[in-house]
Simulated assay, not measured.
Amino acid sequence: MRFSAATFAAAALLASIVGAAGQTSRENLVSLVREDCGSCHGLTLKGGLGPSLLPGALANKDAATLGEIILDGVSGTPMPPWRGLLSPEDARWIAENLKEGFPR
């Protein structure tokens, strides 16, 4: 399996976020989405290299499917797989919160 530089950078960022003292798991996930996902999907999640992750853009997608995309990535695109770095529960939490409007 080949990994891109972006995947390695994402893993390093995730390790630094998860290791941050004084934050709860959910705060870590919010930081991950804002800092790492935002690098491709735009810092305001309105889109960039990757598509918009705002509720309107995700309205016709269910959270379970979005969670699987987070975990497995999208072949042939820059979207890396996060399985092994995120649990299925964390991916589902991210997906549900993206559909509702991600917290600041």
Rank of each mutant, 00 (worst) to 15 (best):
M1A: 07
M1D: 07
M1C: 03
R2F: 13
F3K: 11
A5T: 04
A6H: 13
T7H: 13
T7S: 10
F8D: 01
A12P: 01
L13H: 04
L14W: 09
L14Y: 04
L14C: 01
L14T: 01
S16C: 05
S16H: 05
I17V: 15
G19E: 04
G19S: 08
A20C: 04
G22D: 07
Q23M: 13
Q23Y: 01
T24G: 14
T24Y: 07
T24I: 06
T24V: 07
T24H: 04
S25L: 12
R26N: 13
R26H: 11
E27F: 08
E27Q: 15
E27D: 11
N28E: 10
N28M: 11
N28K: 14
L29W: 00
S31L: 14
L32A: 15
L32T: 02
L32V: 10
V33G: 07
R34P: 08
R34F: 09
R34C: 10
R34E: 11
E35Y: 01
E35I: 04
E35L: 09
D36N: 15
D36A: 14
D36K: 06
C37Q: 00
G38M: 11
G38D: 10
S39M: 05
S39E: 01
H41Q: 06
H41M: 12
H41W: 10
L45N: 05
L45V: 10
K46A: 15
G47T: 00
G47S: 03
G47K: 01
G48R: 01
G48N: 07
L49D: 13
G50L: 07
S52M: 08
L53T: 01
G56D: 14
A57N: 11
A57E: 13
A57V: 07
A57R: 06
A57Q: 08
L58C: 14
L58T: 09
A59L: 15
A59R: 15
A59N: 10
N60M: 08
K61F: 14
D62I: 07
A63R: 01
L66V: 08
G67S: 15
G67D: 09
I70M: 13
L71K: 00
D72G: 10
G73E: 04
G73C: 11
V74R: 06
V74T: 09
G76L: 12
P78M: 11
P78F: 13
M79S: 05
P80W: 12
P81H: 08
W82F: 15
W82V: 03
R83K: 15
G84D: 12
G84K: 03
G84Y: 10
L85D: 03
L85T: 08
D90H: 07
D90R: 02
D90C: 05
A91D: 05
A91V: 07
A95E: 04
E96G: 08
E96K: 03
N97C: 06
N97Q: 02
K99E: 08
K99C: 08
E100P: 00
E100N: 09
E100Q: 14
F102A: 03
P103E: 11
P103Y: 11
R104D: 14
R104L: 12
R104C: 04
R104V: 06
